[in-house]
Amino acid sequence: MPPKIRIIAVAFSFLLVIYVFDLVRRRHLNEEYSVGWLVAGVSIFILSIWQELLDYMTSMIGAVLFTSTLLFFGLFFIILICLHFSIRISALTRQINRMTQRQALLTNDLYRKLREMKKA
């Protein structure tokens, strides 16, 4: 890996890890969701400094250039994290729908009782 790319990758991984830590510290990101990003940051760092591992992985996936390996794993990570968020959004949508239904039924019950009280 050319030194220029290595320096950029190491700097990027450091910035990513520090930024994720800071987001968790300021409670802008839950610990649960920070794990994936921290793993990604650490993985970029390890692949940037460990040339033999990068070469081994490049040959393992049948790629010629190390850039293809980085692109492959980057894409793999993005797909996984998108799928994870789709699952979470589906669960949240279900929960919001249930809450909206319950809230509407409770409000209806309350108004009905108030109307009955007014009549009595």
Binding site: I96, N97, T100, Q101, Q103, A104, L105, T107, N108
Partner: peptide, 22 residues
């Protein structure tokens, strides 16, 4: 009629299910 008002639009099926819950 009695009215159950949903706070925001949750779609046909979910609105229908609110009726079943009622």
């Amino acid at each position: 009629a009695d009215v159950v008002s949903l706070y925001h639009n949750i779609g046909y099926g979910a609105a229908l299910q609110t009726g079943y819950l009622y």
